[in-house]
């Protein structure tokens, strides 16, 4: 992960700022409008929407069952098979479209896990402060240095590679960035007037956090969530590529691994699944960048 990122003082693991503070009070519709006015924001939103729509509707739209042998093996892209066929004569276009659902499911479930853990750890850490903060941040650091890809490989090797297990491993290891962002945001928001006002009005701590602070931290969090999910998709694809995808499910990484053996004879087997991953990740990155941009420039 690179810019935009939270400003982290190395070693101390301190997030000084998420780089996004000050976007509070900007009406959400206005954020969306400004987002779509930027070329990067528009492209990111379009690619992400395309990804989500394909993931949701894809299996209902494809011309063939991706597991069915429908044509000659290794035929190059044509009208009948827009992305060609694989070694067994299965339609690659159908497989790529159906593969979007796998990526969407992984991204969605990992996103939920990461958001939940990140929010809980980040909020508790900043709300409690003191030694609890220290301890939680140490824990966050530990998870941050843990090489996710390799852990997922070991878990896959020992327990077998299934989708739920993959989601669990990636979800349980990808939250540190979000925890830091949430922590930094809450620390800033805690000092805002409207929080004071709510406190004066008699709101309790937990209520304050859930009703007032977290909704306001959400835009900043969503920008970083996009970056995290983009990385998660790349890791998932890499795992699929080295043969640790769920063998019962079509995924883009699995398709790319099938291409490796036929690289010289069937370029399409490599090009299209990779393009699908690249465009999806690009979309998420662009969207996240644009969100940070919009929030950052509206201070």
């Amino acid at each position: 992960m690179t810019e935009p990122g939270p400003t982290i003082v190395p070693g101390t693991g301190e997030v000084v700022s998420s780089g996004l503070e000050g976007m509070l009070g900007v009406p959400r519709q206005q954020v969306v409008r400004r987002l779509l006015r930027r070329p990067a924001g528009l492209a990111g939103a379009a690619l992400t929407t395309l990804f989500v729509l394909t993931g949701v509707l894809g299996p209902a739209l494809v011309p063939h069952d991706p597991a069915a042998v429908v044509g000659p093996s290794l035929s190059s892209p044509s009208l009948a098979y827009p992305m060609g066929t694989d070694a067994l004569g299965r339609d690659l276009f159908s497989a790529v479209v159906v593969g979007a659902r796998t990526s969407l499911v992984v991204a969605g479930l990992v996103g939920v896990l990461v958001l939940t853990i990140g929010m809980v750890v980040g909020t508790l850490s900043s709300w409690w402060g003191g030694w609890a903060d220290d301890a939680l941040m140490r824990l966050t650091e530990l998870f941050q240095v843990l090489p996710r890809f390799f852990l997922a490989v070991v878990v896959g090797a020992i327990f077998g590679s299934t989708l739920p297990l993959l989601v669990l491993v990636l979800g349980l290891t990808s939250w540190p960035l979000l925890a830091r962002v949430v922590r930094a945001e809450v620390l800033i928001l805690k000092q805002r007037e409207f929080v004071d006002a709510a406190r004066v009005a008699g709101a309790s701590g937990p209520r304050l956090v859930v009703r007032e602070i977290l909704p306001n931290a959400l835009p900043a969090v969503s920008a970083f969530l996009g970056l995290v999910l983009a990385q998660v998709l790349l890791i998932e694809a890499s795992l699929g590529f080295i043969g640790l995808g769920d063998p019962d499910i079509v995924s883009w990484g699995y398709l790319a691994s099938q291409a490796q053996r036929f690289l010289r004879v069937a370029w399409w087997m490599s090009v299209f699944p990779g393009l699908a991953i690249g465009l999806t990740v690009l979309g998420l990155n662009l969207l996240s960048d644009a969100i940070s941009d919009v929030l950052g420039s509206s201070r």
Partner: peptide, 14 residues
């Protein structure tokens, strides 16, 4: 930006 989004195995294959 494009390279950053592309999976590394794909870049290798290309």
């Amino acid at each position: 930006l494009a390279v950053y989004a592309a999976p590394v195995f794909w870049l290798g294959q290309l």
